[in-house]
């Protein structure tokens, strides 16, 4: 049984007087520990597919099963717990909370988690030490950080709850070449530590690291390539 099974999924967004078919009969199996890159032009359905796997959205039809849990059959409460325990998100454009420092942003997903405050801080310190070693930056607000530093904080935030699946939507879109490579390295390291990584991008450089490459167009998967440097 694959870690993630997407089975004949359709997603239709209803607008006032028309419908947008964002996903059209998508099926996909992802094994544990894979480094998956979904690529395609804007509007091809990459983000929608990530959202469905992350339990942020539900398909119009079809099933999304993660670790034997049918996400399409879960209520919002259960999906929240699923996101908290199994998934880490890296959003397009960082999306850090502007009033919180780097450290507080990393701590943010753990705030509602019932565990001792000291353990939460310890966990945030551990992850930040690996991803953003310059401690001086931990007390800085996002606005005081460079794009690469902000993305590092966003990655630390995504990994702080020790997720099985890391979902990244255009993680290098706002970054220069050198910083992009550093960010890809971090995602690669997370994958090496056992985290299944799924990245939606139109940056071909990320494909070089992929164990599975999925090309999308108009809501359909038009090509799946497997193996290292897919």
């Amino acid at each position: 049984m694959p870690l993630i099974k997407v089975d004949n999924v359709n997603k239709i967004y209803k607008r006032r007087d028309f419908e947008v078919r964002s996903l059209d009969g998508v099926s996909l199996d992802v094994e544990k520990g894979e480094f998956v890159v979904i690529y395609g032009v804007s509007g091809s359905g990459k983000t929608t597919l990530l959202n469905l796997i992350g339990g942020l959205d539900k398909p119009t039809s079809g099933k999304v099963i993660v670790d034997s849990l049918d996400l399409t059959a879960q209520d919002e409460e259960k999906l929240s717990l699923y996101r908290r325990e199994k998934v880490g998100f890296i959003f397009q454009g960082f999306n850090l909370i502007p009033t919180l420092t780097s450290f507080e942003n990393v701590l943010f997903p753990l705030v509602p988690v019932p565990m001792p405050e000291s353990d939460k801080r310890k966990r945030a310190t551990e992850i930040l030490s690996q991803i953003l070693p310059n401690e001086r930056l931990w007390n800085q607000l996002p606005v005081e950080l460079s794009g690469g530093e902000q993305q590092r904080v966003a990655i630390a935030r995504a990994l702080v709850n020790n997720p099985e699946i890391l979902l990244a939507d255009e993680p290098t879109s706002d970054l220069d070449r050198k910083t992009s490579e550093q960010i890809i390295d971090l995602l690669w390291e997370a994958n090496k530590r056992g985290c299944t990584v799924i990245i939606a991008t139109h940056d071909p450089r990320i494909l070089e690291r992929a164990t599975m490459g999925i090309e999308m167009e108009d809501g359909k998967i038009i090509d799946i390539r497997k193996g290292a440097s897919a």
């Binding site: 409460e77 929240s80 908290r84 325990e85 997903p109 509602p112 709850n161």
Partner: peptide, 19 residues
Amino acid sequence: TREIGIMKALGWRNGDISK
């Protein structure tokens, strides 16, 4: 809306947001 979306994506339940 944006902040609430991030919260939900990061695993905050509706009850946590309500608190």
